[in-house]
Design a protein around this nucleic acid. Structure first.
Lengths: 156, 156
DNA sequence: CCGCAGTAGTTCGTGTTACGAATTGTCCGA
DNA sequence: TCGGACAATTCGTAACACGAACTACTGCGG
């Protein structure tokens, strides 16, 4: 924090996080769901997933996920189908209603988030997207590398 | 999402949010507190605050805040002192222990967040901080405006 | 083919977080 | 002084998150 208009990288990251969280929550509320359920639905847009897989993507313990899927299922937005190839496993998929809802939710959320950097020139927005994108990619610790490159102790 | 290495501004913002959230949570966990309690403590580093004031800063309903302060108080990290100037009001302040803990928590969290853009040149980091900082400032709806501009339904 | 370690998910109990509505006590302006 | 505004709490409800214990199925070694 350096007092004047300019902001340290840490403050900028933390505060932008706050901002995006708020947008996400507001958008979810508007569609009568919670942020977590919204996140789940968004992940499922790409296709059905198993519970374990979802847990990894959302970084949730499996017991947490059971509850989240339960509640979202109770809302009629997702369904569980048993995996034909593995009788233990389950595939969580969007219901027609869930699919319809997430379509709108996703679009609206994107729109709102896109509005956040409205004060920036298009050019600056591109630069921001590029830099922030690089930060994300650099930290998205691809599973593959974890085993080999253990040096930095950067474990989550 | 544009498939290749580059990332849209929306994806970049959302994913960086995910990243920062995770860092915050991990750091908090290490110090035996929750993210929310950590956030509360960080706000209080600058000095004692009233409940209403805290609610505005953390964007929490007052009833939510009562609980958060209760739990944090139970952990011995903050205390309530009654405001001498207004018998209705309360000032929440760090206890010595809380102060000590937040000092370390804050430092560590900053360190971890500062590490996120480690892959960027110092110059690029500055640009990122500047751009992201501008986004934050442009969206930090000063309380004053909230009352007058009610149209958007942007309420908490 | 059997048995057994490992995996996928659920259940259970606990604690945190968040909210709105109703309430209590205080402040202050008409 | 009275009544509206305000600070905070209480209460009831629901979502969320976790770990530990459990069930049921898989797949491998023997």
């Amino acid at each position: 924090m350096q007092g004047d208009g300019r902001m340290g990288i840490v403050a900028a990251l933390v505060r932008s996080t706050f901002l995006v969280d708020a947008v996400y929550a507001a958008s979810a509320r508007k569609y009568g769901i919670t942020s977590q359920q919204g996140q789940l639905l968004c992940v499922l847009m790409a296709g059905p997933r198993g519970m374990t897989e979802l847990g990894a993507m959302l970084r949730l313990a499996k017991s947490s996920l059971t509850g989240l899927v339960d509640r979202t299922e109770r809302n009629g937005l997702v369904g569980r189908e048993s995996d034909p190839d593995d009788l233990r496993a389950v595939r969580v998929a969007l219901t027609p209603h869930g699919s319809e809802l997430v379509e709108e939710f996703y679009a609206e959320t994107c729109r709102r988030i896109e509005d956040l950097p409205a004060a920036l020139d298009p050019e600056d927005r591109d630069v921001l997207a590029d830099l922030l994108g690089r930060v994300v990619l650099a930290n998205e610790v691809p599973e593959v590398f974890l085993a080999s490159e253990e040096g930095t102790g950067k474990k989550v």
